[in-house]
Amino acid sequence: MAAGGDHGSPDSYRSPLASRYASPEMCFVFSDRYKFRTWRQLWLWLAEAEQTLGLPITDEQIQEMKSNLENIDFKMAAEEEKRLRHDVMAHVHTFGHCCPKAAGIIHLGATSCYVGDNTDLIILRNALDLLLPKLARVISRLADFAKERASLPTLGFTHFQPAQLTTVGKRCCLWIQDLCMDLQNLKRVRDDLRFRGVKGTTGTQASFLQLFEGDDHKVEQLDKMVTEKAGFKRAFIITGQTYTRKVDIEVLSVLASLGASVHKICTDIRLLANLKEMEEPFEKQQIGSSAMPYKRNPMRSERCCSLARHLMTLVMDPLQTASVQWFERTLDDSANRRICLAEAFLTADTILNTLQNISEGLVVYPKVIERRIRQELPFMATENIIMAMVKAGGSRQDCHEKIRVLSQQAASVVKQEGGDNDLIERIQVDAYFSPIHSQLDHLLDPSSFTGRASQQVQRFLEEEVYPLLKPYESVMKVKAELCL
């Protein structure tokens, strides 16, 4: 049975990233139509530049190519590739079939990587351009969430054990800070992308030097003109047959890092959902379990974690691919890159769409948070109580021993009897502590235990987050809708 299948058929496997999760716009960027249309555009740009620099290419040939950029006979191309065992030459023939007058000058002087690699770089750039505003929107939604809850005390956790208090907004800023680093890295790697350009079979530009009869300047002009037509500021000066596969490492490393950030955020949300302090959106008709109707599973956060793990592992592909590119190139890269580049971007696209949807509907339960604080705060307040007693004339050592005994009794009630923490009640009825009984409410005010959390939130948002989001103001209103 021949390899390949009808990918629109229910009898043929289709990647869930495309069929179930990723956005239509990201799927289109990695589609065959987008790819092969870009090949034709690159052939047109090459012909236009070659004509401008004096090669015998007519206006009629150029116009014929322009008129057929979208006229792609995919069936013919597939048949040609089956016959020739070469995808680029299959599309040269297919393009030439609908451009008979231009057929002889299509791909003039070029090698397969002229269309293959340059198209990949265009796709990487455009895919990054799709991700950047999506990530900015996630940051914006979380920034709104953090600002609104900047002063809401909550129990902090280290080692997932109760620690000092923080605020809900401050905790959210930990998430935002990681995503801001990801946004900066995505922008950097996007701006650092260079075009492969017009380089020939081993990167020496020998074929173009021959076409222009040894004119170095025209060869350099050709490279520059096509690079500018493709919208790049610069091209690699040095290439082998391909652009260095280190570029793929750079791009997928940034995406993998984004995956790590999203995994951490969504894990926190899942843990908070278990504590009943916070939940992701839950639709009115949504079913959490087929057997347990009360369940409210954090399905979206779980999906993000599941896909983020996949995204983090994909960076190993370009690392290994770059390491086995012998001399000017081997074909070890080809099949692998067809999979890992598309999957990385479709996965990143999915987790950003999902995280935006989550961040637009996060639900906080202040009463649950308050109750958990009441359970733990008495123990945390013991040092403040000791200091207040010393100020009232008591002995630190005597007070410490009193607190120690009462704390152990209260802990026994919590752990052995399943009761509430009654340390404060014990202190309130103990005559030894009568000098500070009137101060206990103040000493137990949760806001006095959150330090500068709310001020940190305000400063972080104003100095770091809002300036970073400013270039994306025009796209901030787009909502994230999930079908599944």
Rank of each mutant, 00 (worst) to 15 (best):
P100S: 12
E425A: 12
V324K: 04
Q61G: 10
S323L: 03
S207L: 02
Q375G: 04
L355E: 01
A381C: 06
F327I: 09
V364S: 05
A381K: 06
P10W: 15
A335I: 03
D215I: 11
L174S: 14
D268Q: 06
V364W: 06
S412G: 11
P298S: 08
A22G: 09
D11S: 06
R141T: 15
P100D: 11
Q356G: 10
L124T: 14
H400L: 05
Y365E: 08
E148A: 11
A256V: 07
S9W: 14
P366A: 05
V324M: 09
N185V: 08
V198N: 15
L377K: 01
I237R: 09
C483K: 09
D422P: 11
Q409G: 09
K170W: 02
I237M: 12
M299A: 15
G109Q: 00
A49V: 07
S395G: 11
H93T: 15
L469W: 05
R20I: 03
A78W: 08
L108K: 01
I369T: 08
V429D: 12
Q408R: 11
T204A: 08
L444D: 01
I265Y: 14
G54L: 08
I369D: 04
G54C: 08
R149S: 10
A480C: 15
T201L: 00
D248R: 04
D117P: 00
Q439I: 10
G109F: 00
I424W: 12
T58S: 13
Q416P: 02
E79I: 09
N421R: 04
E81Y: 03
K134H: 12
I139N: 15
M181Y: 10
Y13N: 10
G288P: 00
A90G: 14
Q241S: 02
G419W: 07
F195P: 05
L108G: 06
L444P: 00
W175R: 00
S454I: 10
N421K: 04
G393F: 06
R37I: 15
R396G: 03
S12W: 08
G197P: 02
D441R: 09
T382W: 01
A102K: 00
L84E: 14
L258Q: 08
I249M: 07
S19I: 03
D120W: 06
M292S: 04
E148N: 09
E60P: 10
S407R: 00
K66M: 07
Q241V: 00
R459S: 12
C173D: 04
R296K: 05
M278D: 03
M380K: 05
T227P: 06
H217D: 09
T154D: 07
F232A: 01
V390Q: 10
G156P: 03
V413R: 12
D59A: 11
H437M: 05
T330Q: 01
S301M: 13
Q375W: 04
R83W: 10
K479G: 15
P366V: 05
D268L: 01
S447G: 12
A49T: 06
Q184P: 11
D420Q: 05
R338S: 02
Q51E: 06
L44E: 07
L84D: 14
H217V: 11
L44Q: 15
S448W: 09
D223Q: 11
A291D: 02
G54V: 00
D6C: 06
I249P: 03
L461V: 14
G419I: 06
D422R: 07
K402T: 05
F449C: 02
V475A: 15
V189E: 13
K402V: 06
P10T: 15
R188E: 06
Q458S: 13
T354F: 05
F36A: 14
K233A: 11
R404K: 14
R452Y: 07
P467Q: 15
L155G: 02
S112M: 00
L55N: 07
E220S: 14
V138F: 13
C305V: 06
L314Y: 15
S151T: 11
E462R: 08
L155T: 01
T321C: 09
M26G: 01
T52S: 11
D192W: 06
A102E: 05
R234D: 09
Q241E: 04
L132K: 11
M299Y: 08
D32Y: 09
N274D: 09
C27T: 14
S257L: 08
G418C: 04
Y466F: 13
I57D: 00
F449S: 03
E401M: 07
T321L: 10
L461G: 03
L252P: 03
K82T: 12
L423V: 04
H107L: 04
Q375N: 12
C98K: 10
F379A: 02
R303Y: 02
G169C: 02
F433I: 05
I57Y: 05
V429E: 14
T154H: 06
Q409S: 08
M292Q: 02
T201R: 00
Q161W: 00
E383V: 03
E463D: 10
A348M: 11
H86A: 01
Q320I: 12
N421L: 06
D32R: 10
M380W: 00
M380Y: 01
D117R: 00
L275Y: 06
L319I: 11
M380L: 08
I62K: 06
C99W: 01
S12G: 15
M299H: 08
M316F: 11
V254R: 09
A342L: 06
E25F: 08
A256H: 03
K147H: 09
R196C: 13
